[in-house]
Design a binder for these strands. Sequence first.
DNA 1: CATGCGTGGCT
DNA 2: TAGCCAAGCAT
Length: 300
Amino acid sequence: MESLPGAVRTPAQELGDTLVDWFATAARDLPWRRPDVDAWAVLVSEVMLQQTPVSRVEPAWREWMARWPTPASLAAASPAEVIRAWGKLGYPRRALRLREAAVTLTERHDGAVPADVAALEALPGIGVYTARAVACFGHGQPQPVVDTNVRRVVARLIHGRAEAGPARAADLADVALLAPPEPARAVRFSVAAMELGALVCTAGTPRCGACPVRDRCAWRLAGCPPYEGPPRRVQKFAGTDRQVRGRLLDVLRAACHPVPAAELEAAWDDAVQRSRCLDSLLVDGLVEQTPDGLFTLPRG
DNA sequence: CATGCGTGGCT
DNA sequence: TAGCCAAGCAT
């Protein structure tokens, strides 16, 4: 058993404490949270989890880590291999950037994942959220970690609003107010706040009956007022370039050899849109054209 | 700062 | 059923 926190608490820190204690019993047993995983495994999980649900990441992460357990091993893989292994996690540019990050780690960080937030943010595909998540969950640093779940939790718990607005610079400071002062507890608070947003304080139909801080939640105390703000734009998919790019990549992932343009015509009828999307895939480095005009995943 | 970028499950 | 939603990032 861990000793009880010794320092005096602010009311906000008492909320953070309650979340830490709740997490001890309510946390999901996710493979990248096991004590033996290293910072590289955490980094890979965090990149995969950028906009992709846990349920789809889990099997992909297991296969990925078995195949490329170190930055150096991934750096040695070809883009084509990496794109295929990414499978249908979505946003395949993430796979390319993860490989580029592995190259940078191998060439400039002795094959290790740095613990420094600024060094992490300098890696391709690693932004404000992921850099802090890796420093915190991968290296045990007491960093504030703010993702969409945490912003929603803070919006309700502290500000009494139903939803978080757009990200603000003050988000990090808001979360820091809740964090317990002991470093080890602060680390667990960061993951606990995310877990509460993922399991209880969800975007639609929050499970307030299961919430450990419902009696101190500013949103509940205000009577759960509805969201007032600019209507969020709905992200369309059917018929967009994103769908067409996905179809084209589907063909190339399945092909064992470079394919002629004619073989890509089956992926989408509209030739203008198809051509535009193929061009954008070439620009992104997700597709490569051979000297004889065939198309393939980039062989590096 | 708004937009584009995949995919699939859920209500 | 047609949105809505899921541990963001780069531009």
